[in-house]
Amino acid sequence: MHTLVQGVILGVLTGGVYALMASGQTLIFGVMKVVNLAQGAFVIASAYLAFTLFTQFGIDPLVAVLITTPLMFGIGVVGHWLFLRPLRREDATELSILITFALALLVEGILSITYRTTYRSINTSYANKAFDVAGFSVSAVRLYGFIVSCALLLLLYVILQKTRFGRAIRATVQNPQSATLLGVDSNRVKAYGFGLGIATAAASGSIYGLLFPFNSGSHYDLISRLLSVVVLGGLGSIGGAVLAGVIIGVVSSVAAVTWSPTWSEMTFFVVLILVLLIRPQGMFGRVERGAL
């Protein structure tokens, strides 16, 4: 029983990071109707950035978030302008998949040359510290990571609900045509929406780097996991992505402590299959057969 609860705690804390990463991915989907295959790569790139900032300048990765996030936002906007905007409308969806895939490869290639392929992790002073809460061990790193994830998700929520930019995004996600009629500049929204999605990747990268060892090839694993989370939550639903992140975090963590760590990685895959079989639109996704 104790191990079970321990597993749940661990799962919730880790789930927060997945929630953050997945929210960016599902946001990009909502705005551009394209699944960004490079999301994982940007998380890893940001993890490397945080790693460099830490090893070279001693900046704590969680603090580095303040640097990496605006930087990645900018990269996201520029990347969108360079690679995604010029697509002719007919081909857009199909080519977007491949373009984001190519971007992921580009990022992976650059990272592997810059950093080689050895696994890295960010070992801060509190990396091995753990708190004792009511008899359960709570790792400091995971707790801080969770707190930061929650804070950022809250920030995302505020941006989307309270700012004009956020409202424009939500309107575009709901109904792109009406949004344009209401005066929303769809190109701008797509560019900034994409940037915002990449920015969440940036923020989560720091946390990811603290929690898991990574190398340039880690984005494949990560994008697969993110897909499971996003599909469970429902494409386009940020709330769904958050909830799904925590759920999958808990399930995989419980599987790891009660069964085996290797096979717990399969949890993501199993969840994906189950969702696709039983309810492909996930928890909160829309069932639309693309009429409009």
């Binding site: 069932v287 639309e288 057969r289 693309g290 009429a291 409009l292």
Partner: peptide, 11 residues
């Protein structure tokens, strides 16, 4: 159009 989509099984 929504009615059309509903009738024809698209929504």
């Amino acid at each position: 159009t929504t009615v059309f989509n509903l009738i024809t099984g698209y929504l």
